[in-house]
Design a protein around this nucleic acid. Structure first.
Lengths: 136, 136
DNA sequence: CTTGACCCTGTAGTTGCTACAGGGTCCATA
DNA sequence: TATGGACCCTGTAGCAACTACAGGGTCAAG
């Protein structure tokens, strides 16, 4: 499989595939006589793993750890669980933050009554923390 | 006010203040004889506006537009409302995405029963999209 | 034999900062 | 008067995770 095919098969940008190789997340594949990268099924599986993990918001370093684990089938699974749990906690934290933010924005947007910028409640609210109901 | 004082007054890193000046978000202040930046109240208000907007997740470019608006009190307020509303919609979209993600992660984490990596359900789930209940 | 799709390397850009390196200034204390 | 420490200056490089070229090579179809 050439890089374009792998790209289509996994929905990954070609530049991104080369980037993952450069940072050591994907192994260097064999090359054809014309120096083209040549991939097999294990490469595709590994890239699918990486993309799926990225979609779920794991960082490259977390994925590196998860890949190390899956490369060594003897190792204890609890580290994978720990990484995923910590990430879940971060996502929950982020949702909580964004929810506060949404409430604040809703309040700010709701105050707009039209008119000119000099009287704009949106701009006023942005310039003045005292309008806020929660800390940020 | 010197830069350190402005930094403390607004809770903004000194490097960040200089960065905002470099990208034209804050005007160049006067200088003392020793070439130190010298700020007044309008600078502090503008920086407070910027920081508050950043805390609410507005991009630098959005803030630039909002500042342009507030610099011109004759202009119509509806653009500020439009920027804030669009941002609110983005925040809501992000919350929705993260909520799906959280559910997916909860499901993945919940499958861990301990054991070795070869049997790890977390690693399996990351390598295989078919376990997912929503698209991503 | 040329056109167009594909591939290669290497480097620079993106966003919003943050962190130096290498220097200058200012003020209090010994 | 010397010196130490807190503060300030410019300019550049780094972070994450890509993305976008520039400038070139390869290959099959018409």
């Amino acid at each position: 499989m050439k890089i374009g095919e792998l790209s289509r098969a996994t929905g990954t940008n070609i530049e991104t595939i080369r980037y993952y190789e450069r940072i050591g997340l994907l192994p260097e594949p064999d090359r054809t006589a014309a120096n083209y990268r040549s991939y097999g099924d294990p490469h595709r599986a590994r890239l699918t793993f990486v993309r799926h993990s990225r979609d779920l918001g794991f960082t490259i370093e977390e994925i590196r750890s998860l890949l190390d684990l899956s490369d060594d089938p003897e190792r204890d699974c609890s580290e994978a669980d720990r990484i995923a749990s910590r990430h879940l906690a971060q996502v929950e934290e982020k949702i909580a933050q964004l929810t506060l933010l949404r409430d604040e924005l809703t309040r700010i947007v709701g105050r707009c009554r039209g008119g000119v910028a000099a009287d704009c409640r949106v701009i006023e609210a942005l310039g003045d923390h005292r309008h806020c109901e929660s800390a940020h």
